[in-house]
């Protein structure tokens, strides 16, 4: 009974994290976007417009759910769930602090990447089912990007696993007690963040929904709640990049210079660090032009992939000689 309660509670907490976190991030993004563009941003709903995301959510829920006449109805309805559910589940092995983790599995990192690998499925199904050429191109681009960026992503994560000697996210963070992994893994960090941004698909790598080329990519035909799922997934993914990077490279809930907070409060460090990384992602989003699809794939195969392999070799040597650990 307890376990069942825990599972249900955990599931609800997950959805809460994703929906709440994603919602807040849309507000933060709009405010930051406005600041970078020297505009005001949302400022009408609530103090400083902070309730804007609630209003947006209500609007999206209340909106008519339009399914165009000639779409593949089954796939069209399925696709948002195919994107949203893995994105939510991927949060479950992430430790927000030592006690704040929903499932600690021994192969947590592997589980995360397995779930992340499901993302292109939803995008391709959405693109195909929409019966729209822009959607299809967007879905194909999303698939091409996700598949190619998985490889450097995984290889640089493997370096971390080597260094920590475990694939459990809790263990990885605990191993960083003396030294955060971004110092021995500086190369890996670069590859990881670049590949992660590419995988999530925000500017400069937002090719699947490049609005000046493909209108809105695979979400072109979606509206209302189904669109909200895609939208939320994107922002949840931004949060996810930051959270995963913090876990793997910046010591999770551990404070810098031994400034550890008591276990109940140590999630504050986690969210602070994640916040900084999210800011960096938004910053890139707002300042870099979009790359072309061929350049994008070139960056992956000619830069990130060799770098990640090099990093793996260096890490192996370090581990073998006992420099790290």
């Amino acid at each position: 009974m307890n376990e069942l309660l825990f599972s249900v509670g955990g599931a609800l907490a997950l959805i809460g994290i994703v929906a709440g976190g994603g919602g807040v991030l849309t507000y933060v993004f709009r405010k930051l976007f406005a600041d970078f563009g020297q505009r005001l941003g949302p400022n009408r709903v609530g103090p400083y417009g902070i309730l804007q995301f609630v209003a947006d959510g209500i609007k999206l829920v209340a909106k008519e759910d339009i399914i165009p006449a000639r779409v593949e109805r089954w796939g069209f309805r399925l696709a948002p769930h195919l994107t949203f559910v893995p994105a939510v589940l991927a949060f479950s092995p992430l430790p927000f602090s030592e006690g704040l983790i929903i499932t600690d599995v021994r192969v947590g990192l592997i589980l995360i990447f397995a779930l992340a690998a499901m993302a292109p499925l939803g995008e391709v199904v959405a693109g195909w089912a929409s019966n729209n050429k822009y959607s299809m191109l967007g879905g194909l681009r999303a698939a091409a990007m996700d598949v190619s960026y998985e490889i450097p992503l995984l290889i640089s994560a493997v370096s971390v696993i080597l260094l920590a000697g475990s694939a459990s996210t809790l263990e990885i963070v605990k191993k960083q007690n003396e030294l955060w992994f971004f110092i021995p893994q500086i190369l890996g960090l670069f590859v990881f963040v670049a590949a992660m941004i590419g995988k999530v698909g925000v500017l400069p790598f937002d090719l699947p929904d490049a609005e000046s080329e493909l209108v809105a990519g695979y979400v072109t035909e979606y509206s209302g709640m189904r669109f909200a799922f895609f939208f939320l997934t994107m922002f949840a993914n931004v949060f996810f990049i930051a959270a995963l990077t913090v876990t793997l490279y910046f010591g999770g809930w551990l404070g810098p210079f031994g400034l550890h907070l008591p276990p109940m409060l140590s999630f504050i460090w986690f969210f602070l660090k994640a916040g900084v990384l999210i800011f960096v992602v938004f910053w890139l989003w707002n300042s870099l032009p979009r790359v072309r699809i061929d350049q994008f794939l070139n960056i992956n195969w000619k830069l990130l992939f060799p770098l990640s392999l090099l990093n793996l070799v260096i890490t192996s040597i370090m581990v073998a000689w006992g420099v790290a650990r």
Binding site: G37, Q38, D206, L288
Partner: peptide
């Protein structure tokens, strides 16, 4: 032009 290339903020700067 900036907007076409995805440099979103060029648009606001230009119009400002």
């Amino acid at each position: 032009f900036g907007l076409d290339l995805g440099a979103l903020n060029a648009f606001w700067y230009g119009f400002r």
